[in-house]
């Protein structure tokens, strides 16, 4: 019988990186993901650059407005990093929150050679500052594309409590590559939104197994929406970030054409499938219903066998 959390003696850095990504705070994720002691935060909590809107609603603010941005080193090389705190207002984008990420991406564009890691953990736009938040999403999407055009690699890491929804899902779609864990979910409309608009027959948001097999990390990996599937540890996300940074190719019109063709191909092959299990079956996976229960290592082995996207698309 294997015990998932046996206590053994490990060096402190090693022990830290075995920590759960899902459970860690945004600041802890950043600290443990990058090289020890290398993180420098921009506009940190001591600057008290809080949301100008929340007080109008008599709601509590957070000193960093729910996002950590900064620079550090990954295996010795410089990186920019942004991490959303999914527990503060569901990691939602507000005016300041969004501006911090936009600024980071523009700095990366101007420098040109330093990649950006975005640790998504968001339900989308913050309702209390919807206009500012929607504008922020548009600005960030533009900033991602401008950075990529300037040669910057932009990697999304997704495995937090809030998943990656709404505008976060759109931004993730603009990234050079994504790594996702089982807990991470990527979508634009959330389960409740779909149920409200299309009815419970279309999507039962309380059926958590349905939510995960439609939006969860395993499905995104099998469908090609995410490049890498990782287990829920900080070390696994670190390894994935390094792997992606070394494998991303140049961005240009050919990438977009390849992406368009990949999506058309996906629609053609799976457009008639009513459920993710049908898609997995169509992919030739035997016993597709067993996928949600597969441990991470077995799933990764399976996913590697199933398909390696040949096209140079994201």
């Amino acid at each position: 019988m294997s015990a998932p959390h046996t206590q053994t003696t490990k060096s402190s850095a090693e022990l830290d990186r075995t920590a759960s990504w899902y459970e860690a705070s945004a600041r802890t994720r950043v600290r443990l993901l990058l090289d020890p002691g290398s993180v420098v935060e921009f506009i940190g909590p001591e600057k008290r650059e809080v949301s100008p809107h929340l007080k109008l609603f008599d709601l509590p603010e957070q000193f960093d407005d729910g996002i950590v941005v900064g620079r550090g080193r990954l295996d010795g090389s410089p990186v920019f990093v942004a991490a959303q705190e999914g527990r503060f207002m569901g990691g939602a984008f507000g005016e300041v929150h969004g501006a911090k990420l936009t600024g980071l991406l523009r700095a990366a564009r101007d420098i040109g050679s330093v990649p950006v890691l975005i640790l998504f953990d968001t339900g989308g736009v913050r309702l209390q500052e919807a206009n500012a938040g929607e504008l922020a999403i548009a600005e960030i999407m533009r900033a991602v594309i401008e950075a990529r055009t300037a040669g910057v690699k932009v990697i999304g890491l997704i495995g937090g409590r809030a998943g990656c929804y709404g505008g976060g899902g759109l931004i993730a779609g603009c990234c050079s590559a994504l790594a996702v864990s089982e807990q991470g979910r990527i979508s634009v409309s959330g389960p409740e939104v779909i149920e409200t608009n299309r009815g419970v027959e279309e999507f039962d948001s309380r059926d958590r197994a349905l939510v995960w097999r439609t939006m969860g990390g395993k499905h995104r990996r099998l469908l090609g929406g995410a490049e890498v599937f990782v287990d829920d540890t900080i070390q696994d996300f670190r390894d994935a970030a390094l792997e992606l940074l070394s494998s991303i190719r140049a961005f240009g019109i050919d990438t977009l054409r390849a992406e368009q063709s990949r999506l058309e191909d996906r629609l053609q092959r799976f457009g008639a499938c009513p459920d993710a299990v049908d898609i997995w079956t169509a992919e030739g996976i035997p016993d597709a219903v067993s996928i949600p229960a597969l441990p991470a290592d077995q799933f990764i082995a399976l996913a590697d066998k199933v398909r390696r996207s040949s096209r140079d698309a994201r």
Binding site: S25, R27, G44, P60, Q62, F63, D64, E85, R87, F88
Partner: peptide, 9 residues
């Protein structure tokens, strides 16, 4: 000089 802990939730 500085430390921050916890989250507003």
């Amino acid at each position: 000089k500085l430390a921050v802990i916890g989250v507003v939730a």
